[in-house]
Design a protein around this nucleic acid. Structure first.
Lengths: 158, 158
DNA sequence: TTTAAGATTGAGAAATATTAACAATTCAAA
DNA sequence: TTTGAATTGTTAATATTTCTCAATCTTAAA
């Protein structure tokens, strides 16, 4: 098992502005503050409503629809990740820009208290036993989704 | 990597009736037909609406709410699994009764055609490379959720 | 700095999946 | 068969997310 912990690095404010300009998108107060809220709470998994509440603290005039639109935009720019805990809310968390290829975060979901935390990709190798030894999380079930290109699509591609 | 493929075995009609009676629940035409639809399409991932359409073919008088209620019941009885593909629908598939402990299914999601298929748990060991070699599915991303009891909850338990 | 074009926003309406309410029906034990 | 409780179907309600559109803001050019 690799031991180096890759420190997760969220995108900075200036890089975000630059990225928006590169994509021909406009830099707005609303976009900056939504990203800021997510960047300030890197280990939380905020619903749109929760983001809205926190954004309103600094910016009472913002509309809920704008939060929905901005979150959608940040997803497309791959600056944030979405996680679905099947409780009726989509949740969002800041991504990290360290990796050249973007990947989803992985999660530990406590069936008793409901707490959700993320774990580093390099623990995947030892999966459950590794997580239990390192984090004291006793795994009783898991769900894996692999995204990619299926055989049929690969063959059509040629 | 283990090579034996565990054949998945869905619950039979009579076993289902017996289970309902054991739990003090009533055996109804609606419950039987909803389970039957799911059992007849073991590799599909049906939305509630799709189940409703197929159920209506045999049983035109059934109500949509009953399908929602029955699917919920089947989940609680651990006879079916739910998968969320983030398209706004909850999807359901028949589970298998072979394993003594119930586990979620794992899924391959093609980013191009959207097709979703399940894969055997014993492939998890070799994860991405194994899936690619055996199924021709080129993995570009993955999402893992580990469910269990976190350290804090374990300690409180004592 | 001013202007102009187009993107973005805010407010509320609309869409949509799921749940709740409740009277009517059905199941199952006596 | 009777009886009581569980289940069902219909419809209304709920709640998250999207849509609409006029007003506002951003940005590049004048």
């Amino acid at each position: 098992m690799r031991r180096e912990q890759v420190m997760s690095v969220a995108i900075g404010r200036e890089d975000f502005k630059k990225l928006l300009r590169e994509k021909g998108l406009k830099v707005t107060r609303q976009r900056l503050v939504v990203l800021e809220v997510l960047a300030e709470n890197p280990q939380e998994h905020l619903t749109t409503e929760e983001i809205y509440e926190r954004v309103k603290a600094e910016n009472p005039d913002i509309g809920l629809a704008t939060v929905y639109r901005t979150v959608q935009l940040l997803l497309e720019l791959e600056l944030i990740d979405r996680i679905n805990l099947d409780d009726g809310f989509a949740r969002y968390e800041i991504g990290d820009t360290q990796e050249c290829e973007r990947h989803r975060h992985h999660h530990l979901i406590c069936l008793r208290c409901g707490r959700v935390s993320a774990f580093q990709k390099d623990m995947l190798e030892a999966l459950e036993t590794g997580v239990e030894a390192a984090l004291g999380f006793r795994v009783t079930d898991h769900e894996v989704k692999l995204y990619g290109i299926c055989r049929d699509c690969s063959e059509k591609e040629i």
